[in-house]
């Protein structure tokens, strides 16, 4: 019997070390047999402690209340950009103070170019902001309504609340959200506004026809062209005789990537998805906090597709140049894209 005990304890040791062989494991279970004492010892060595979910739940609630939700921004900026940003912040602060006196308590979230961060709105929704974005909560947000004004790019995870639909107003479109996850790219200086729906439901309306609600299905994206749809030569054209200025298409998933191209930026990957040179330049500006100019000779409608994980600006520029479709010059924080030589 004594030998049994020692053998059992040795096997249990191997079991805990993760070095037990299948045959030995069977032997150990045989030794346990109907022996309550061995069974208890086996359980003491293998079971994890019991957990009272409610006490953990309560601990989490306390913890979450005290948790600072700020994230430290990372990025490089020009001094003058900081000055402009500071001025903008002051202006916004002034507006906020002014508005809060008259109509509730609006709040503003801003990212500078080259900066990306996440914010949690008073209703519990979270938004990840790409560089150069601004999100303004309307006065009375989360009381009577949930309405925001937005420009830039954001990955929205909106809390469901049927009583207070979430509305996003951008320069060229208004989006009604009913609890959902989606990506919105709406920079003032870019010619299209793109909404990619990951899950849930959204409806959007265009300023020209606010009564017409256009629903969007998950897995689809809508591109609204402010100046009308252009063909590849850059001249204004409406496809198939359509009188609308938007296109609905599928969101795209690249092989080996964990999420749709439209949202990969939230995993710190810079993505060009059949983007023309103008959009490439704009994305580079927002991503790296630099100024990107396009020389007159360059083909502005040339399209590029690529995914860059955590790369220096120079590496990305060199990769673009290697396509043979452009060359670049960079001095400090200013980049010029030009037609290739020869």
């Amino acid at each position: 019997m004594e030998q049994d005990e020692n053998r059992f304890e040795a096997l249990l040791g191997k079991f805990m070390a993760g070095t037990i062989m299948p045959g030995e494991h069977l032997e150990m279970m045989d030794l346990i047999g109907n022996d309550d004492r061995k069974q208890a010892l086996y359980e003491a060595c293998t079971g994890s402690g019991p957990v009272d979910q409610q006490s953990v739940e309560a601990a989490f609630e306390r913890h979450w209340q005290q948790l600072p939700s700020r994230v430290h921004p990372a990025g490089r900026y020009f001094v003058w950009r900081r000055v402009v940003a500071a001025a903008a912040v002051l202006l916004v602060l002034g507006l906020v103070v002014f508005q809060s006196i008259y109509r509730g308590n609006p709040q503003t979230f801003i990212t500078q170019v080259g900066e990306r961060k996440s914010v949690i709105l008073p209703d519990g929704s979270t938004v990840r902001l790409n560089g150069g974005s601004m999100l303004v909560l309307d006065g009375g947000f989360n009381q009577a309504n949930r309405r925001i004004t937005f420009r830039g790019e954001g990955y929205f995870q909106i809390e469901k609340d049927a009583k207070r639909p979430f509305t996003i107003v951008t320069e060229g479109t208004t989006i009604n959200v009913l609890g959902t996850v989606f990506n919105l790219r709406a920079y003032e200086e870019e010619d299209k506004i793109e909404t990619a729906l990951i899950s849930g439901r959204v409806e959007f309306t265009l300023p020209a026809n606010p009564a017409k609600k256009i629903p969007l299905q998950p897995g689809k994206k809508v591109s609204v062209y402010k100046e009308g749809i252009r063909d590849s030569s850059g001249t204004a054209a409406l496809t198939g005789g359509a009188t609308e200025n938007y296109i609905v298409s599928d969101i795209t998933l690249s092989p080996g990537q964990p999420m749709a191209n439209e949202t990969l930026w939230t995993a710190d990957k810079l993505v060009f998805d059949g983007d023309n040179l103008v959009l490439v330049a704009s994305k580079l500006e927002k991503w790296y906090g630099v100024e990107v100019k396009i020389a007159n000779g360059a083909n502005r409608e040339k399209k590029f597709s690529a995914i860059f994980p955590h790369m220096e600006l120079d590496t990305v520029l060199q990769a673009l140049a290697r396509t043979g479709s452009l060359r670049f010059s960079r001095s400090g924080e200013s980049v010029t894209l030009d037609a290739p030589t020869d």
């Binding site: 994890s48 953990v56 601990a59 979450w64 939700s69 996440s118 979270t126 990955y155 995993a267």
Partner: peptide, 23 residues
């Protein structure tokens, strides 16, 4: 870890908390 790092995902953070807190 990924969801918390890149998306500040509260649900994922909550799961991490539930995983690590009792132990």
């Amino acid at each position: 870890q990924h969801l918390v790092a890149y998306h500040r995902d509260e649900q994922a953070y909550r799961r991490l908390f539930f995983h690590f807190y009792p132990l």
